[in-house]
Design a protein around this nucleic acid. Structure first.
Lengths: 161, 161
DNA sequence: GCGATCCTGAAAGAAGTGTTTCAGAACCGG
DNA sequence: CCGGTTCTGAAACACTTCTTTCAGGATCGC
């Protein structure tokens, strides 16, 4: 997370990143072997990618159901047409609540899209009534429950197919 | 990814998982120190959480913009009312395309929600025209572009606030 | 209250880790 | 061509890693 200069990643960098997207714990030596580099060179490239912030973070992904979070909701939010002030307060509220995993400003008929995760439907109801619907500036909320995931990955498409 | 028996995670497990959600590279010793356990015990718990599949995967998260993927779209899809056969083919098509990161069956007015990532808007247009709109059974697609992320995390809420 | 089981944690070890160093190869501008 | 810079990769390093072992403590059923 250092420089914002848009560097061009060569195909080798992309292959390294692709390995790391699948296995965040892969060691330099392991990656070197998979992409066909020497261990030192691979290591140097990896640290560079880290320094530049192209590799943002390494995380463990958990099984949502296994930790008891059975409900996942996508909610669209429309704010009432007020000053920018309300928007900033809305964002702060969003960031404060851990059950909101993601929130994006949207282009189109709705202002925001949120991905929310809770223990069960009762918990979502409570979250909706007590918090979300009362967030600063909120006018309309439209909640849709996500059922079975058909696909669910964090790996970005890096191969220029 | 071994047993599906819903085990009860005690507070200590949750704290371990929380550390790993933030830093997927944390070693057993490091975690032990952070949660207040002995290294051996922490290690044993971590391997158990891995065996049980509660820790699904360790990955590196990349900076989407930095790798040149500037466009992110949420698309809702409605299938034409056909047999289950079309649905299965639709799912296969979804899984085959790396620009689709996520896809969920939805409860409500739309059948599926997809998160799609592409190099630029032209690339999305191409993907939409050449593939998505032609996926088996697709009747209506509604694409909304996501702008600035207000919040973006993979960390599930584990503390029972 | 006792035996058997389970859980704990210190110690030990081999294997692997990231990182630096250094000599040589490759490359480039002029 | 030739001087200087950059890139490469083997070797070495100290350190950390995961993992097993083992003895002692705790726990449980009966």
């Amino acid at each position: 997370m250092q420089q914002m200069t848009q560097r061009d990643l060569d195909p080798m960098d992309l292959r390294i990143l692709d390995v790391l997207q699948q296995n965040g714990n892969a060691s330099a030596a392991e990656i070197a072997e998979q992409v066909g580099l020497t261990a030192t060179t691979a290591w140097r490239r990896i640290s560079r990618l880290e320094e530049e912030g192209i590799i943002r973070q390494r995380v463990a992904l958990l099984d949502r159901e296994a930790v008891g979070l059975t409900v996942m909701v996508f909610a669209t939010v429309r704010l009432s047409s007020q000053g920018r002030d309300a928007i900033e307060k809305f964002k702060q509220a969003v960031r404060k609540h851990p059950e909101i995993l993601e929130c994006y400003t949207m282009l189109g008929e709705t202002d925001f899209l949120l991905r929310i995760v809770t223990r069960d439907i009762k918990a979502y109801e409570a979250f909706y009534l007590d918090y979300l619907s009362r967030f600063p500036g909120v006018q309309v909320v439209n909640s849709s429950i996500a059922l079975a995931p058909i696909k669910e990955t964090t790996a970005l498409p890096l191969t220029k197919a």
